[in-house]
Design a protein around this nucleic acid. Structure first.
Length: 926
RNA sequence: GCGAGUGUGACUGAGAGGCCAAAAGUGACCGACUCAAGAUCGGUUCUCGCAGGAGUUCGCAGGUUCGAAUCCUGCCACUCGCACCA
């Protein structure tokens, strides 16, 4: 083997590609694809690599097909993560420092500067660009920007002005997880404990006790009609507190929580739980009820006091039963208020008894509570005397009633506790005010998105259901922040625009990004953008011609053709950007398609930077070469499937590329003569061109590689086998080389660029014309003949395998014409059952008698066992089987090592000769 | 829990009612070439079989059909999402 220095080769290519992929509007049809821009807070790993390499393969493919391709890239730096990172590094946090120093290999001097968040993103943006280039990504880097560039901020302000004017941004209150210590809302990833916790909305049912209220929290306000008592924990000390001036009795924890939920709370005195036991409270809807002691009451849960509905709540039922079994409170009877199919008067009792639960501590209690809850919610109705509403309806109407007439309030609480912030402190539910929302819940907005979604091309098609559901499910999105990097809300500059919300239509920005940097930000007024993106009247501007040109460029590129992104973004970014597009742009500028990717695994485990389970892309390129990394990443699975990076598999990909390189280099010396095998090879090649093209049009990179690489390799194998020994191959190889290099160029552009040059190709292969299959080069009869030969050899080999005695000769007996006739008739027949009768109508054949009947049966069998394409071809071509074998006799003799004779089956005396069928000659070893 | 998806031979994966014992790649084993290793090339890789065949397989259990990896039902397992975050 004579391999080049791939590292050197890559360097030369990168040099040749410098500025080669900068795209400008031309007379050609365009193809605009974008990928979600990265948030550069760390080094790229091979998972990121695939995210950008797959689109690059697509970009290179369309470029070679003559499209003007735009593949831009920018960096998303708005938001809070880098601020957290810089703080942690400033604080000397070991874990953060280890990650950046050891895994991401940030030099110590640079790391020191990471106390400034912008330094982090600047460092990694540059690194991203360097590594992306090293991967051979055909990006137009002139358009690079970051989301904190002043021009971009102007663009965001323009967009938000429209969203605001369009009525898509509303102000409201919003419960969030909040850490008082950090004085900030906390997201899932900021939690030490309780990351699954959801905020639930409880109704506080206000029971009167002396001059105060005892609020009990419930998710089932409709059960107020069945309250028999309250529960208090006698071992807990409660407080009497003035809540918005009104005295409430709640747990100490509850008092603190309420203070975060829009209440002013002043604690006045402590009240031991035990002193509340046996007190009487009252409520308009259930009258006077006693307070009973119960150990299960958790002071950390909502108000720390609960109402008891033993007929419908298993916990309440069991707690009451336990007390009554000790002879206490025996006068209390459960009060039934809901009827549910499948349960008796007291569903809680039924459920407990069915499950055979005897104690409050039984672990199944939560499960059966859920069971009763769900059953009643799904199919329960209030008793007729209470109005007969469904539980679903009653829950709404009763809570409205309680709020309006009975001083009830809402209280938010987590469904799972404890919830602990990364800083170690307890997290509370806080109601944020003045929060701005994108009103994704707006049915009219949703409807426009849904309608557009129908017109979009989604790859793979299975994701459509998920998009539809997401559009349906999206609620209002809190779109402003107090902390982080970003653009300020134009009409309320105390707020920053939230980072997902500022990244929804930036694909439009790319189209003119390289021109926009020439403008001072203050000149980029809304009127300018209105002209550029919406075609409104062009404002007066000293550089009006420039603006006109930019408008033209935008119109050339937009809308984008495909957006590529990982599947985890379906439920936010990918759907958000559709909402924003329909809100801002006219129909003609709405996105055309999306391609959704699978996730990456490393040696079978999920890739995760925080767990250190990553393989850096730059290391991979250094170790294996960029082409190897590319070919592995696009070839191991289709884009939407998850892929698994395993070093040993990657190494074998490298060998494949080396093999490819050598094969092509060897073709340079091949003579120009065309043999039968050459014609066959060229004929086959047309199919591979066709199939590769189709696969890439459908983004099936793996399938494309299957055709463009392995299928061609396997043809070459047969081709070489068919060559007379010692010959180096013929004229087909030159054509093959030229086609093959181009088919592989999108995937392994470095190697192909080099080979293109070596084989005398003109210019860059990156811009060479994509091969087109030529009908005139396809010879069906030859392909069928070779197919017959291959199949026969396969049969011969399988016989040889089981043969014990060494044969001295081989006869191949060709089926007679009448059998070929029968075969054709069988193959053409539509109705399989009638075939026999129809064929036997033929005088000539009927004379054959039993042999004919037998042959019909065998042919029927054979026709169904052969690939339809072959049968079809057989019907279309006039195949002279005997000639095929005669011309391949040398080849057969060489393969089997015995003399071969080819005879007509009817001339052979051997009984086995009768077995001969079309496409399946009798094989006789003697 | 809810929603969307996936389960194929040692592994990655094609296959979407008869072309299917199931493509291709990888790995493993054997052979050729080598002093040797690597690379390369040829062969084998579910079980049985002295004639191109037969048997048992495609998460599990049923069902539809002349016929099921493929269609239907149930179960099990895995992946992703469930938001204030990139």
């Amino acid at each position: 083997m004579n391999l080049p220095d791939f590292g050197q080769l890559e360097k030369e290519c990168l040099h040749a590609w410098d500025h080669a992929f900068e795209s400008n509007p031309t007379g050609k049809e365009k193809f605009y694809l974008t990928v979600a821009y990265p948030y550069p807070s760390g080094a790229m790993h091979v998972g990121h690599g695939r995210t950008y390499i797959v689109p690059d393969v697509v970009a290179r493919f369309w470029r070679m097909r003559g499209r003007e391709v735009l593949y831009p890239m920018a960096f998303h730096v708005t938001g809070a993560p880098v601020i957290g990172i810089s703080k942690r590094i400033a604080r000397g946090d070991e874990k953060a420092i280890r990650l950046y120093r050891d895994l991401y290999k940030v030099p110590p001097e640079t790391l020191k500067q990471f106390v400034d968040p912008l330094t982090i993103v600047r460092h990694f943006s540059d690194e991203y660009q360097r590594v992306m280039s090293a991967c051979g990504l055909s990006i137009d880097w002139r358009r690079r920007f970051t989301t904190v560039d002043p021009q971009y901020s102007k663009f965001i302000e323009w967009q938000w002005k429209h969203l605001h004017e369009g009525g898509h941004v509303k102000k409201g209150a919003h419960p969030v997880r909040f850490c008082p210590q950090c004085d900030n809302p906390v997201g899932d990833h900021d939690l030490l404990e309780g990351d699954k916790a959801e905020i639930q909305k409880f109704v506080l049912v206000m029971f009167r006790w002396k001059d105060a209220f005892i609020p009990t929290a419930t998710l089932r306000p409709e059960t107020i009609y069945g309250v028999t008592n309250l529960w208090v924990n006698p071992n807990v000390v409660y407080v009497r507190a003035r809540v918005d001036g009104v005295p409430w009795i709640v747990s100490r924890e509850a008092a603190e929580k309420l203070s975060f939920q829009d209440h002013t709370v002043i604690i006045e005195e402590e009240i031991p739980g035990s002193s509340l036991v046996d007190e009487t409270v009252s409520h308009r809807l259930c009258g006077n009820v006693p307070i009973l002691p119960a150990g299960f009451v958790d002071p950390g849960m909502a108000t720390g006091l609960v109402m008891s509905v033993p007929a419908h709540a298993p916990f309440d039922y069991i707690a009451l039963r336990d007390l009554q079994s000790k002879g206490l409170y025996t006068h209390i009877r459960p009060v039934s208020l809901i009827t549910v199919p499948g349960y008796g008067e007291f569903p809680a009792k039924d459920a407990v008894e069915r499950a055979g639960i005897s104690s409050q501590d039984d672990p199944r209690m939560d499960e059966i509570t859920q069971e009763v809850y769900s059953a009643e919610f799904a199919s329960g109705r209030l008793m007729p005397e209470l109005g007969g509403q469904t539980v679903r309806e009653a829950r709404e109407s009763v809570s409205a009633l309680l709020i309006e007439k009975d001083s009830s309030e809402y209280m938010y609480e987590f469904d799972i506790r404890p919830v602990v912030c990364r800083c170690g402190n307890q997290v509370f539910v806080k109601i944020l005010h003045d929060q701005w929302f994108l009103e994704y819940s707006d049915p009219a907005w949703k409807a426009r998105v849904s309608r557009h979604l129908e017109d979009m091309s989604l790859v793979p098609p299975e994701v459509r259901a998920e998009f539809e559901r997401t559009v349906d499910w999206l609620k209002d999105w809190a779109c402003t922040r107090r902390v982080g990097l970003g653009t300020r809300l134009p009409w309320d500059p105390d707020w920053l625009i939230e980072p997902l919300s500022d990244s929804t239509i930036y694909m439009a920005y790319y189209t003119i990004a390289h021109h926009l940097v020439e403008f001072p930000p203050e000149e980029l007024t809304p009127e300018v953008f209105d002209y550029l993106f919406l075609g409104k009247e062009c404002p007066d501007h000293p550089r009006k011609e420039k603006l006109v040109q930019m408008r033209r460029e935008f119109c050339y590129w937009y809308p984008y053709d495909y957006r590529f992104s990982a599947k985890d973004l379906i439920s936010n970014h990918l759907t958000f950007q559709l909402f924003h597009h329909v809100a801002i742009f006219p129909r003609t500028c709405l996105p055309r398609g999306m391609v959704v990717f699978g996730m990456g695994l490393l040696n079978g485990a999920k890739m995760s930077s925080s767990k250190g389970n990553v393989f850096l892309l730059e290391d991979a390129i250094r170790e294996f070469g960029a082409d190897t990394v590319r070919m592995f990443l696009v070839g191991s699975a289709e884009p939407w499937q998850d892929f698994d990076w395993r070093n040993e598999l990657v190494s074998s990909t490298r060998k494949q590329i080396e093999r490819f390189y050598n094969t092509i280099m060897e073709t340079r010396d091949a003579p120009r003569t065309m043999s039968v095998a050459d014609t066959w090879l060229v004929s086959r090649l047309q199919q591979h061109i066709q199939k590769t093209t189709e696969a890439l049009e459908r983004f099936q990179t793996r399938q494309a590689l299957q055709e463009a690489f392995f299928a061609i390799e396997s043809d070459l194998k047969w081709y070489r086998r068919r060559l007379v020994s010692g010959t180096p191959g013929g004229g087909a190889l030159h054509e093959l080389a030229s086609v093959w290099i181009r088919l592989m160029a999108p995937v392994i552009p470095f190697t192909c660029e080099k080979l293109w040059k070596e084989t005398g190709g003109e210019g860059l292969v990156s811009y060479a014309q994509w091969p087109v299959p030529e009908q005139t080069k396809i010879s069906g009869d030859l392909e069928l003949a070779e197919e017959l030969l291959m199949r026969t050899i396969e049969d011969i080999e399988s016989i040889q395998k089981v043969l014990q005695a060494t044969p001295s000769s081989l006869s191949i007996c060709i089926a007679p014409a009448w059998k070929r006739e029968i075969f054709s008739m069988v193959a053409r027949a539509g109705d399989r059952n009638a075939v026999m009768r129809d064929i036997m109508k033929d005088e000539q054949i009927r004379k054959m008698g039993k042999a004919a009947a037998e042959t019909i049966k065998q042919c029927t069998n054979l026709v169904h066992r052969l690939p339809p394409a072959i049968v079809e071809q057989y019907l279309a071509e006039k195949l002279d089987e005997k000639a095929v074998f005669l011309s391949a006799r040398d080849f057969l003799e060489k393969g089997t090592g015995v003399p071969v004779t080819i005879v007509d089956a009817e001339e052979s005396l051997h009984p086995r000769a009768k077995l001969a069928l079309p496409l399946k000659p009798a094989i006789i070893f003697e």
